[in-house]
């Protein structure tokens, strides 16, 4: 704290100190987060992508799945072409059905982000419960849960997802189920290791001395303190889930054609790539890439901001 010549605390420093006292932890985290320009850019990009996905029906030039609005005669037009009917341009070209790629990408983002986020939330809840259970109960339960986690994590995620798809069959619910199964182990491991550390701290002991119920101790005291590492893992996992879903859909083993995610759009353009019509695969891939990179940039900064070991 800067101190002036006569020994009193300078005015701006005092104001800063007062502000720090009034700040909630969330605001402090946000303040630290936006100090990094690259992370701020990532967050802004991510906001744009999510907004585009949410408001896809409002901002898309056409509804790509309304057969009345698409014209097969406009099929496979390069980017920037005018529509045959004279109204509007296809800034990113059209696919084989004459669908505007820009609109298809907005709608595809919706499905990709929905699948990624919903599977992450479900996996988070399951992993959190399993991890807390393992850490708090201990003993054989812990050994069993952690052994399952270890075995699962020793196999690559794509392999586990493919096994599940082979067993369950295809469809949006089954893809989400596969993604949840792939992800829960990461959360269980993270929560358990965080909870094991937190459990030995004085505040938990104090809560025990106050004879609070175990449920209250776990959910009101242990859980909030385990959250920071979990938030980081969850952010990274949303990106991983979106990429995995796109891969499965590209292989033809993910979402059905009625749910055209970015992976399906890319797969659809694959057959035209060899004849030089690059845009059908290229632009959905760029959208996928931007989504994944922006999430990873945010996660990277969150890891630094939420890490208590790094001094502020």
């Amino acid at each position: 704290m800067p101190v002036s010549a006569d020994g009193s605390v300078t005015a701006p420093a005092a104001a800063a100190a007062a502000r720090a006292a009034a700040e909630s932890p969330w605001r402090r985290v946000a303040g630290d987060f936006f100090r990094n320009p690259i992370a701020t850019f990532g967050a802004a990009l991510l906001c744009l992508i999510v907004l585009a996905a949410i408001f896809a029906p409002l901002i898309s030039p056409q509804d790509p799945y309304d057969l009345a609005q698409i014209d097969v005669l406009d099929g496979k037009l390069p980017p920037g072409s005018h529509a045959g009917s004279g109204n509007g341009r296809f800034w990113l070209g059209t696919d084989d059905q004459g669908r505007d790629m820009l609109s298809a990408i907005f709608y595809g983002l919706r499905i990709s982000i929905f699948v990624g986020v919903s599977s992450t939330v479900m996996a988070l809840v399951i992993g959190l419960a399993a991890g807390l259970l393992a850490a708090y109960v201990g003993g054989r339960t812990e050994t069993f849960v952690m052994r399952v986690v270890d075995i699962q994590l020793s196999f690559p995620s794509i392999l586990i997802a493919l096994i599940l798809i082979a067993v369950l069959g295809q469809g949006i619910g089954k893809v989400i189920a596969a993604l949840v199964t792939v992800q829960w182990a990461y959360y269980a491991r993270t929560v358990r290791s965080a909870a094991l550390v937190e459990r030995r701290k004085e505040y938990v002991e104090a809560a025990r001395c106050l004879a609070l119920s175990p449920m209250r101790i776990v959910f009101r005291h242990l859980l909030p303190n385990c959250l920071p590492p979990l938030i980081v893992v969850a952010t990274v996992q949303v990106a991983a889930a979106i990429a995995l879903e796109a891969t499965l859909s590209f292989l033809g083993l993910g979402l059905p054609i009625t749910e055209p995610s970015l992976g399906l759009l890319i797969a659809n353009g694959y057959q035209y790539l060899l004849s030089g019509k690059y845009w059908i695969s290229f632009f959905p891939g760029i959208a996928l890439l931007l989504t994944i990179v922006s999430i990873n940039l945010v996660a990277d900064q969150l890891r630094d901001v939420l890490n208590p070991r790094l001094s502020r």
Partner: peptide, 23 residues
């Protein structure tokens, strides 16, 4: 290297085909 972690493998494969085989 950060890009290498973020790029979806299958799409990079398509782009490699596009550049080195088609173009």
């Amino acid at each position: 290297s950060i890009l290498g972690f973020s790029l979806p493998t299958f799409w990079v494969g398509l782009m490699l085909i596009m550049v080195f085989s088609v173009m």
